[in-house]
Amino acid sequence: MLNNYLSSHNIIEKSLISLKDFKNLKELSTFMLNDAYYHELLSATEFLDNPNTQQFNDLEMMYLFVHNKKDMNEKKNRMTNTKQEYIRDLLIIYKQLLDNQLLFNIELTYVDKHLTPSLFQSLKHGNLRKYQEWLLTAPLGKGAKPYAVATLSRKMIILKSFLAYLYRSEYIQVPLHEKMLSSNVREDDIPNRDLGSNEVIQLLDYFKDHPIIHCFIAILTTTGLRIKELCNSRICDITYQDGDYWLNVMGKGRKQREVLLHPNIIEGIRVFRLRRRADFVLDSTDDSPIFTTANGNPYSYKYLSNYLTKHINKANITFIRMRRTPITPHFLRHAYAIISAENGATLESISPSLGHSNYRTTARYLEKRLSRKNSASHSWKNSKIIKNL
Rank of each mutant, 00 (worst) to 15 (best):
M1V: 15
S8V: 14
N10K: 15
L16R: 12
D21N: 13
E27W: 01
L28H: 10
T30I: 10
L33P: 13
D35K: 09
L41Y: 01
L42H: 15
S43Y: 14
T45M: 12
F47D: 05
D49E: 14
D49W: 05
D58S: 07
K69C: 01
E74M: 03
K76A: 05
T80K: 00
E85H: 04
R88T: 10
D89F: 04
I92S: 06
I93E: 02
L115Y: 02
T116F: 01
S118M: 06
Q121G: 06
Q121K: 13
S122Y: 05
S122A: 03
H125M: 01
H125Y: 01
N127F: 11
Y131M: 02
K142Y: 00
G143T: 11
T151F: 14
L152V: 01
S161H: 14
I172Y: 11
P175G: 00
K179V: 13
D188S: 11
D194H: 15
S197F: 08
N198Q: 04
V200R: 12
L204K: 12
D209A: 02
H210A: 02
F216H: 11
I217A: 03
I217C: 05
I217V: 14
L220T: 11
C231E: 12
S233H: 07
C236Y: 08
I238T: 02
L247Y: 13
G253P: 13
V259W: 01
L260D: 09
L261T: 15
L261Y: 14
E267S: 14
R270K: 03
F272K: 03
F272S: 02
R273D: 01
L274H: 10
R277S: 13
T293Y: 14
N297S: 13
K302W: 09
T309G: 03
H311D: 07
N316C: 10
R323G: 04
R333L: 10
N343R: 00
G344K: 13
Y365E: 06
S371V: 05
S371G: 12
K373E: 04
N374G: 03
S375D: 13
A376D: 12
W380H: 15
N382A: 00
I386S: 04
I386Y: 11
I386M: 14
L389S: 13
L389M: 06
